[in-house]
Simulated scan of single mutants.
Amino acid sequence: MLTNASLFLDFDGTLVDLADRPDEVVADEELRALLARLNLRLDGRMAVISGRSIAQLDAILGPVAQEVALSGSHGCEHRWQGISAQPHRPPTLDQAAERIRPFAERFAGALIEEKSYGVALHYRLCPEIEKEAVALAWHVARDLELELQEGKMMIELRVPGGDKGVAVRRMMRLAPMKGTTPIFIGDDRTDENGFEAVAELGGAGIFVGKPGETGETGAQYLLESPAAVRAWLEQAAA
């Protein structure tokens, strides 16, 4: 099924179900073992590309995180084949957190998540604040010259210059992925850059969720849930 293919996997909402709080997400042993088998089956042509930082992915995935290619923080940081690359963390991220925190503290369900190269505001537990939260984030991003990334019930200010498409193109220039057909699986607007990149490179995107859930998508195929993704990957790893 994945002959001469390279596989790029989003994490939250793709390999695991979304949680009300990002720190509640765990990777069970079955998922860790599946990723290890896939990486072996593909001779290293597999990567996890996430909005989470590499440090977060290491903590969640355990030892398998050291075996697979990783791109974290929406394509801002990378680790593959023993080589790591990270940008400078600008002080404007701390300034962004300080400007958003008073707003988040007004609502019991709002959560600030400070990442290696980003600051996210989650409002899954208080969706009524979405419009106000997005407006504030746009204002702060403009003032501090940060990139704005909208996702499912969250918005993130991050270091400019990276996205998941950048991560795909970067890895596809190198062996053993170079010259193969890329497949990207993701569930959110943050994954659309990845879908665009694999399409340009002759590959395909697979959207996880219900049709139209995040608006129009550049993915060509659909899987309904992380459970369906894992079932499909189990077949691919066999």
Score class of each variant (00 low, 15 high):
S71L: 03
A137S: 15
I206Y: 05
G203Y: 01
A137M: 15
V229S: 03
A133N: 02
H78C: 06
P160D: 03
L144E: 08
R101W: 02
M171F: 15
A237V: 02
L157E: 03
H88K: 04
P182Q: 10
Q149L: 15
P102K: 04
I155K: 08
Q66N: 09
A231D: 13
M153P: 00
M154G: 03
P102D: 06
P63I: 08
N193I: 02
D20M: 13
P160L: 06
L34C: 01
I100K: 04
N193E: 12
M172E: 10
M46E: 00
R45N: 06
C126T: 15
C126N: 13
V48D: 03
C126G: 10
E216N: 12
I129R: 13
G186Q: 05
A5V: 14
A199E: 13
W138D: 13
R52P: 01
G202L: 04
K115P: 01
G203H: 07
F195A: 06
A5D: 00
L144N: 08
M177P: 05
A59P: 00
K152F: 08
V48E: 02
A135D: 12
I155N: 01
I54E: 04
A85F: 11
T180K: 14
R173G: 05
R101C: 07
P176S: 10
R37N: 07
I60Q: 09
A167S: 11
L93V: 05
P226M: 07
H78K: 11
D23N: 08
A19Y: 03
D94Q: 11
V166Y: 06
G202W: 03
P211R: 12
M172H: 13
V229L: 04
G212Q: 04
A120M: 08
L125I: 08
R52A: 01
A204W: 12
D188S: 07
E29M: 13
M153N: 02
R99T: 03
P63S: 05
A199Q: 15
Q86H: 12
I100C: 03
I112P: 06
F107Q: 04
I155L: 01
G218Q: 13
I185R: 07
E67S: 05
P91L: 06
Q235P: 02
S6Q: 01
